[in-house]
Amino acid sequence: MVAKRLALGLLTLIIISLLIFLGVELLPGDVAEAILGQSALPETVAAFRKELKLDLPAHIRYFSWLGDLAKGEFGNSLANGRPIADLIGWRFSNTLFLATVAALIAVPVAIILGILAALYRNSLFDRLISMATLSTISFPEFFVAYILIALLSVQIIIFPSISNINEQMSLFEKIHAIFLPCLTLTLVVVAHMMRQTRAAIINIMASPFIEMARLKGLNRTRIIVLHAFPNALSPVINVVAINLAYLVVGVVVVEVVFVYPGLGQLLVDSVSKRDIPVVQASGLIFATVYIGLNLLADVLSIISNPRLRNPK
C-alpha cells in the first residue's frame, strides 16, 4: 500500500516535470523571440536559440533538461546570465528556514487549540476560537501582514518591516528579522489547521466505541488518550502535512510583502521578467516539496491507521 502510494507520487512528479516543460513549448513563437522581442536581428535569435538548445527536438531536450536537473544543473538565468543553481541555492534555504520556524510554532499551537475546542465544544472558548479562525481564513495573507507591520513596526517599533537576512547574522538576529513574516504565516496556517483538527476530533468523539468507553466507566483522560487519540492520529497527521504543504506555497506572498530573499520572491520576479528557466526551476522545486509533503501525509496516515496497520 505504502509502496503503491510512493510509486504514484513519483509518477506525479514525472508528469509534472513534463507539464512544466511542455508549458514552455506551447509558448506562441518561441522563447527566444519572446524574450528578445520582434525587432531582434535574426542572427541574434539564432544564436540565442542555440544557447537554449532550441534547435534540438523536444523529447531530447526534455531528457537532457531532466538529466541536468538531477545533477543540480539548472542552466543560466535569461535575465542576468548567472547560473540558476547559485540564484536558487541560498534563497531556497532561506525559504525553508522561514517555513520551518513558522511550522514549529504553528503545528503544536494548532493541534492543542483544535483539541481543546473540540473537547469544550460550544463553550465560549470554542466560539471565540471559531470566530477568530473564521476571520483569519477570510483575510488575505497580505492584509494580516500589513496589519502586523502597522502595529509592530510602525506604531511601536519592535520588529523590522523588511526582513533582510544574510549569512553573517546570528540565529537570534535572524529570528528577530523574520519575526513578522513568521507570525503572519503562523496566524494564517494555525486557523486552517485548527479548524480541521477540531473537525477530526469531533468526528472521532461521536463514534460508538467512544460511547462504549464512557459506558465502561473510564475516566475522561483515559478515553481521550487511549481511545480517541490513536484513532484521531491518522486524520490529524493528514491535516498537519497538508497544511505544511499549504505553508510552503503560502510563503510566496509573505516573502514579497517583507522583501524576504527567498525562493518565492525569486519566482515572482522571474515571472514578471518572463525569465523562463528560473521559473521552471523554482516552480519545480516548490512542486516537489508540495508533492513530497502530501505524499508524506498519505504514507503516515496509512501507517497510523490501526485497521490498515494490522491487516486481516
Binding site: S207, P208, F209, E211, M212, A213, L215, L226, H227, P230, N231, P306, R307
Partner: peptide, 14 residues
Amino acid sequence: YVAQSAAASFNPAH
C-alpha cells in the same frame, strides 16, 4: 452495556 453493532463499538486500535 452490549450494543447493536459490535463492529462499531469496539475500538479498532486495540
